[in-house]
Structure formats: C-alpha cells, structure tokens
Computed example of a mutant assay.
Amino acid sequence: MRLHDREYLLLGGTGGIGRALIEPLLAAGARVIVAARRPERVPHRPGLSSVQLDLAGDDLPDQLERLSSAYPGIDGVIHCAGQNRFAAYDTLPLAALAAQLDVNLRSAMLVARHFGPRFQRLGAGTLVFVGSTFGSIGYPGYTAYCASKFGLRGFTEALRRELADTPVQVIYVAPRATATAMNPEPVTALNRALGNTMDTPERVAREILRAMARGDRRRFLGWPEKLFVVVNGVLPCLVDRALLKQLPVIRRFLDSGVTS
C-alpha cells in the first residue's frame, strides 16, 4: 500500500503512538488530519491539519459528518485513540469505565460505520485500528481495558471479513506495553518489577506503518507477547498459571491506592 499522496484522518494524534505517527506519515508524502479534543496541541506543519473531535461524544456521528464534509479527500483512517485505567475491577470509577468503552470501542465502530461505505463508493480506502496485546489476553487490573480491546479485536476481525469482497482494507495492530503518558509511573514500575519490555511510541509507529505498507490484516507486536497470545488462545490454563505467579506483585500495585 502506498502512503504517498494519501489523506489520513488520525485519531489520537496529540500524544503517544499517534503523535509518533505524524512525522513518518508526512515524510512518506501523506497528508494528515489530526482529530482531537484539543486540536491546539497539534503543531503547524505543511501537510498537517487539525480539527476538533470528541470521540466520547453522544453526537459523534454528527461530528464525523461535519468532518468528512470539510475534508472530502480522506481515504484512510488510523484509529489509535485510547483510554486506560489500571484499577481493581470493583474500584474502577464508573466514569473511567464508560470512557474506555466509548473511546476504545464505540468510537471505532462509529468511525468504521461512517467511513467504510464512503471508501466503498470511492473504490479504495484503509481503516487501521490500534488494539493491544490485552485485546487477546485478559490481565488483572485491566478488566475494562481488556473488555474494550477484546471487543475492538472482534469487531475488526468481523468487519474485515464482512468487507473482504470490497476494496476497503481493514488492518488491526496490537502493541504490547508502550511507554506513553497514558501509563502513570506506578504502571511503569509494575512493568519493571515484572520484567516486561515497554516499547517506545516511535517503534510502535514504525510497526504500524510497516503493517500498512504491506497490507497486513493483523499484526501483533513484541516477543514473547505474541507467543503468549497464541498460547492463551490454545491453552489458556498455561497463561492462568503464569499470571497467578505474578498476581502478588500485581496486587501490591493495585492495593497501593493508585488507580490512574
């Protein structure tokens, strides 16, 4: 898939992985429209535009209509916006639960519902969704996040198969732990304590672009994480045992009172 002379709508482009995607997309000759709640955070660059969009808004379908009317040349969407909250299932604030479901899953479904038919009429188009290893492996302290990312993985898989006889490409990329501001220091400390590798946003961005260039349908990042994904699908009891051994360390951070 060529990136040159494409116009991508980038969701989640003001931080983390999304921000790391901007420069390489522009360098490849693409035009980028960053949609965010705080568009003023987007730098002014040739080929780069910004627009306000609230992915958790009840009126998201109307917002998308206005956006695509203002930018009718969009022929690709990269959805890497996300909400996360490390907390025990029974202490997770309801607002945080709603935010994760709205931003991580509902907004992705509505974005696909809006742009998919347009890309079909256009005769080409790409929908890229950034998931997570936790979309395949349920992990303590991330029950709501896992639920939203499991849903995203299932949605993109079904959507890809539903659109298999159309020119619309659906790509799912699942990073492992990534060093972004979405992870507070206690989560970073937990990963250090468990020996988990955390990728940089720039590395993840390169993998996303590689998946796009190759037209990969799905791409899981990191070793041994992608092995665990396979094992969890075939012999989940083995992953159960491995996580049971980690549970005292995980509980130490969960019980510290840190929930964000």
Rank of each mutant, 00 (worst) to 15 (best):
G76M: 07
A112N: 05
L94F: 12
L122M: 10
D75G: 07
L94C: 07
F115D: 00
L67A: 09
R66A: 13
A88V: 06
M109E: 06
F129M: 07
I78Q: 03
Y71C: 11
T91I: 14
R113G: 13
Q120L: 14
R121N: 13
L67T: 07
A99C: 15
A87I: 03
D75W: 06
N84F: 08
L105Y: 04
I78C: 04
L92T: 15
R85I: 03
V130Y: 05
T91K: 13
N104K: 00
G76I: 06
V130L: 09
E65N: 12
D75A: 03
L97F: 13
V103C: 02
R66N: 15
A95Y: 01
L110P: 04
P72F: 10
A88P: 03
D102Y: 08
G82C: 02
R106A: 06
Y71T: 07
Q100A: 11
P93T: 12
I74A: 06
D90Y: 12
L101Y: 07
P117E: 10
A87H: 09
F129C: 01
S68L: 13
A98E: 13
L110I: 10
S68Y: 12
Q83T: 01
C80S: 14
F129P: 00
D62Q: 15
P72V: 11
H114M: 02
G125S: 03
T126A: 10
P93W: 08
L97Q: 11
L64D: 05
N104H: 06
A98R: 11
Y89K: 05
N104F: 00
L122Q: 10
D62L: 15
I74P: 01
Y71H: 15
G73I: 01
P72L: 10
L110W: 00
T126N: 13
